[in-house]
Amino acid sequence: MGLSPVISASSSTSAPDTRGADLHAGYSGSSDSHRLDPSPLRVSLTDVQKTFDVGRGRTVQALVDIDLDIAEGEFVALIGPSGCGKSTVLRLLAGLDTTSSGEVELFGSPPEELSRQHRLGVAFQEHALLPWASVSSNISLPYKVAGRSVDKNRVAELIKLVGLTGFEKALPKQLSGGMRQRVAIARALVLNPSLLLLDEPFGALDAVTRRRMNSELARIWSEERLTTLLVTHDVDEALILADRVVVMSGRPGKIHHVEKVDLPRPRDTSVTRTPAFHELVDKLTGMLDGAGEDS
């Protein structure tokens, strides 16, 4: 799948590394360019502001000056301290919220249009599986909602992909937390979405299961190569999975830094034990600490 030649992200903050040439290393854009070349094949947030009304005439500024482009086939991770607006960004992309100002475009259309075309895949921290439906039925749900006949081969292929062969008829309550999340991810993938949005899908899992799920998601992504945005607060997870890591600071939420991850794939223990990986972890963790203190 062809990547768009230029990828960039920026914020209104004056942090030098959000606009520096190192951010765009390997890309053809100039260091002072903060946007992709015009192309419909991308996901973009342009000068997005989001304000929430909290009652009695008071408002909270959740996001300011968010500019972010994601190229087709790219995996971007969004990290930041709690309450910095990561999930708000994802909800804007999913069409679950609207911007106060600015523009959100998914491949040239507004998010609602992509939903209507059944081209969005989402997995939330809460798996949102239908408790009365089996694994197969849950994964088939997007077909039914879209009014299409269920492609049983595709469902079987995804069940195999997420390692749940033999559990096709199991109900969600009969599965472990990790297995439920894998079902949710398979459901998000089943219609070959143009954009996959993952909102801390492994947030409720223990460290060991989470690590295993990360490597499984990396494997699945390498096979499907979907344009993906992952919201997480786990730096390791972001670095294992993403092509770029966007660091947000709060409040109000803004893009603080964008890190291009040049580590080779697959990023198994041979990569995660390298000094380069640890340097990146330390660097981004330090930024998160700073962002947390700022907020």
């Binding site: 909800r91 939903s115 209507r116 059944h118 969005l120 895949g121 939330f124 949102a128 997007p142 909602v145």
Partner: peptide, 12 residues
């Protein structure tokens, strides 16, 4: 549940 409602919205 809000998560279910969100899911169905995203699914169109």
């Amino acid at each position: 549940p809000a998560a279910g409602r969100d899911l169905f919205t995203v699914l169109g």
